[in-house]
Amino acid sequence: MDPGDVTLFERSLGDATRRATGADLDAALDDLGWPDALIDDPQVAVSLLFRLQGESGATSSSLGRVMAHALGLADGSTTVLPAVGGCAPPGTVDDGWLRVDGLAPATLPDRPTALVVASTIGGATSACTVATASLDLHPVAGLDPDIGLLRVNGEIETVGSQVDVPAGPWPAAVALGRRAVAHELIGASRTMLDLACDHARGRIQFDRPIASFQAVRHRLAEALVAVAMAEAMLEAAWLDPTPDTSAMAKAVAGRQAKTTARHCQQVLAGIGFTVEHPFHRYVRRTLVLDALLGTAASLTTALGVELVDQRRLPPLLPL
């Protein structure tokens, strides 16, 4: 896409994510040609949509689609996501049975089938198309009921029926999914920072805007550094889109979102603690997004363990 087209696309996606969420946003994305954009220019499609979703707080079933795209399964089906906190395939195949433990968007019941990527005992991965009706679906309430996720469980006999769509490598799908979620975390962080800066400029105490107090200014500056750092890391992950860089980008985005939330919460103080102010939605959202496809904490430890083990740092991003 040329820069002019990207700007137009961004504007349309911005309108859509502000107006619609859930199934309505899915429909709007279809109308806007987002699924085609995902094929033609995945970086533009993923980075714009997920940042805007993060900024507005809208949800869609796009994460599953993004992962399906990376697996080469771009047939529009919904891919079941890994269970909370994890990045292992949501399915395991053993002795003719497929066991499923994962997450899916709330729109899954509208679709006749779902795609479940499964690991087999031999360590291979395969993808199975299963009837939605054969899965147990429970809405996830938890910290952020608005995120619109379902818990997906099931035990399905695979013999002779739904078997083996050939799948591309799972780590690549996780990597692309992590970059998508990192964009969403950054979008949500940006909104938290905007909310806190607006508040700081307008709220008067001791006859001055609280934005004039250095303690407040430094917290907000710290939050901007956090967001900028996550953005830089994520941009690097697109330049060198490996599982390692994508995991780093997701970890940095998750940790920085918490840093941003902490500083902004303090600046918003009482009003930010109420449900009358939108801030709490973003706190909830970022905590749950951090838990998708590996938390910042677990990814950071895993990176360190791998480095200690191999005694070799990955190369720096070339100039």
Binding site: M233, A251, G304, V305
Partner: peptide
């Protein structure tokens, strides 16, 4: 390991 992971991430983000 956690601190090594974090230091590495900070270095790569700075870069």
């Amino acid at each position: 390991p956690y601190r090594l992971g974090e230091a590495t991430q900070l270095l790569y983000a700075f870069r």
